[in-house]
Design a protein around this nucleic acid. Structure first.
Lengths: 210, 210
DNA sequence: AGCTATGAATAACC
DNA sequence: GGTTATTCATAGCT
């Protein structure tokens, strides 16, 4: 951010320079000098066309800035923009999808999540594990069913926000399991463990790689 | 965005002006002229301290731009940034909380599903509608349960790849429904729709009592 | 969509 | 955290 005084001073200085330059060349460029812009006002642009053009330009600028921040400063950035017309534009830094980053956002408030996970009904855990290792219940849908039942019995409507977030993660995990299993099954591939469900540590501070 | 040629041309022009200005005053300001900055390189800043300073400044700049875009162009913007240290910074335009805007984000992909939704087993559709209109089963989890049962009865193990994908989407939809409903319920937010997404929200449009 | 003058952001320095 | 020189973004045109 910048103070008003400094800004005004700089502006005057620049105009001074410009004047000097013009004096040097003897007013030759008089024709184009009057494209005065003026400070940008922080309120909704009324003209529809102009607003749309502004949106396009500023949007690309914003996304560029977002990308720069994520690259230069090694930060994780997620950006979602809806145009007035309802179009979606999104950006997520490098290794994080929007979903992951916002999952992280939701997880931040409750670091105690681990405890909740441990504390949840063992049937769910059990079923997921079984499904993954393909021991007794080869039908993945039953797992989802169990999860739903578990949630139902746990009186979802009275869950706290933290619990809901946790529930969301659990169901998402289950969905991943199911998807993987079905994919493997249909493709006729051996069920190899890819990674995702382990411990959800993808958001933890990781050692840096250079 | 701007072309290289134009940029270079303008830079030369400006430096020409500056040179003219200096010549006018006779090199009096020689002492401070050499703060050369150079183009910003698009790669991670190595120096830790510098990176942190850059992060602070650029972050505030980015958030300012985001706010400007949302105000000037009447767009909805959600921005989440995690510093390398793991700190969270967030911005959401005016009337949208981060959760709402990203709920909206998650709902977008469903556009493609309209046809699929119509085509799939009517029992599911029916149950969802019932749940939604709170006639018999206001508990969103039951919807998930029904979907799971439907998939189970449909002999999932013999589904084609396309069908599995579709199933995955359906479950994801259900998850979205559940999540949003719970979020709204717990946060006590009114379910207000601002934009054109409404038509395909087969699962949420009506405000709830309770 | 492409250009340029101007305003704004910010890298380098206190 | 403040200042200034410089690069960068973009408003106004075409």
């Amino acid at each position: 951010m910048e103070g008003e005084d400094a800004a005004r001073r700089r502006r005057q200085q620049q105009q001074g320079q410009a004047a000097a330059g013009e004096k040097e060349v003897g007013q030759v460029k008089e024709k184009k000098v009057k494209r005065k812009r003026g400070r940008v006002e922080l309120r909704r642009i009324e003209d529809r066309t102009s607003r749309q053009v502004r949106f396009s330009k500023r949007r690309s600028g914003l996304f560029k800035k977002a990308r720069e921040l994520s690259v230069l400063c090694d930060a994780e950035v997620a950006l979602v923009v809806f145009s007035p017309a309802g179009r979606l534009y999104e950006f997520a830094s490098s290794d994080s999808s929007i979903e992951k980053l916002f999952g992280r956002y939701w997880n931040i408030p409750n670091t105690i999540n681990d405890l909740n996970i441990e504390a949840r009904d063992s049937r769910v855990d059990c079923n997921i594990q079984l499904g993954q290792n393909e021991q007794s219940a080869p039908d993945p849908v039953s797992e989802l069913n169990h999860i739903a039942q578990w949630a139902l019995e746990s009186n979802v409507n009275k869950m706290s926000m933290a619990e809901i977030r946790n529930f969301e993660e659990i169901v998402k995990d289950a969905l991943t399991v199911i998807k993987n299993k079905l994919m493997m099954k249909v493709a006729g591939l051996p069920q190899k463990e890819t990674s995702p469900l382990k411990k959800r540590n993808w958001w933890s501070p990781e050692p840096e790689k250079e």
